[in-house]
Nucleic acid binder design. Sequence first.
DNA 1: GGCATGAACTTGAGGAGTCAAGGATCTCGC
DNA 2: GCGAGATCCTTGACTCCTCAAGTTCATGCC
Lengths: 148, 148
Amino acid sequence: MTTRTDALDTALRLVRAQTLLVRRFDARLSGLHGVSLADFTMLLRLGRASGGRMRRVDLAEALGLTASGVTRGLAPLERIGLVTREPDARDARVAYAALTPTGRERLREMLATAEETAADLFTGPTWADEDVALLAALLTRLDGGAVG
Amino acid sequence: MTTRTDALDTALRLVRAQTLLVRRFDARLSGLHGVSLADFTMLLRLGRASGGRMRRVDLAEALGLTASGVTRGLAPLERIGLVTREPDARDARVAYAALTPTGRERLREMLATAEETAADLFTGPTWADEDVALLAALLTRLDGGAVG
DNA sequence: GGCATGAACTTGAGGAGTCAAGGATCTCGC
DNA sequence: GCGAGATCCTTGACTCCTCAAGTTCATGCC
């Protein structure tokens, strides 16, 4: 017998879990690589995109951010040389964000840290492999079917 | 065959789901009651606490925030008269945050909106009641066993 | 009683992301 | 081929929350 109250509690639990999770990732990533989880996620999306580049609008959609959030988040990554700005030959409005060679390399190192952190999160007697997959599946229903 | 990559993807999905979820709650709550989800969550915790009051430190823990985050978040709620500050008779360091009668009343209205929003979130052909309960259970393992 | 340690809270500075507005540029219908 | 409307992106002003430092109070040890 699930009620509206349970739905609300589930939503609030999700918010709390995210807060804690972000803190853990931030601590590790900033300690070892000087980037935040948000930074890393941006780089990861670019790394997974074909050609290592994406339009800012698509990046925003993939990250669940605003276009303006992407502009602001990308700026420091451009400053430190992990990302560059590339124009589109056919449409002068769009500015691609592209990984630099350095960016790609640094991303590889960050990825190892991030995967380790994620693995730690789901470690323990209560977590089975299927549970992680199940959680992912449930969350996918909420986040509008973002690509992996 | 779950891998480190799946764990990371699950974590990132959680972050994205939260972003989207918070936006929905904020839109409804601020439209109808002029508060954010963060505001509402604070009030809700107070409302559920015995006596309608809590030490700021405990509130921080319950919300997954910093003590300083609680100070900052409570300030506007005090200004608009939903919460008051109460001293502790035995320990002059602690300042309770307590719901005012107005706060309690407004909370009741907000709760209806929030529950409705949460119910909408988990509505659709893909969501069964058990799924919501399952998600809640999985999240609880992540958020350090926060109380309901 | 006096002091070291630590807990509860606040505050200044700053990071991250939002919204609303504005500047280019593209596209489509005519 | 031109004007209307949409799309892509940036910017200013603001909110929310963090960290680090500081204040005030409590407690235990000698």
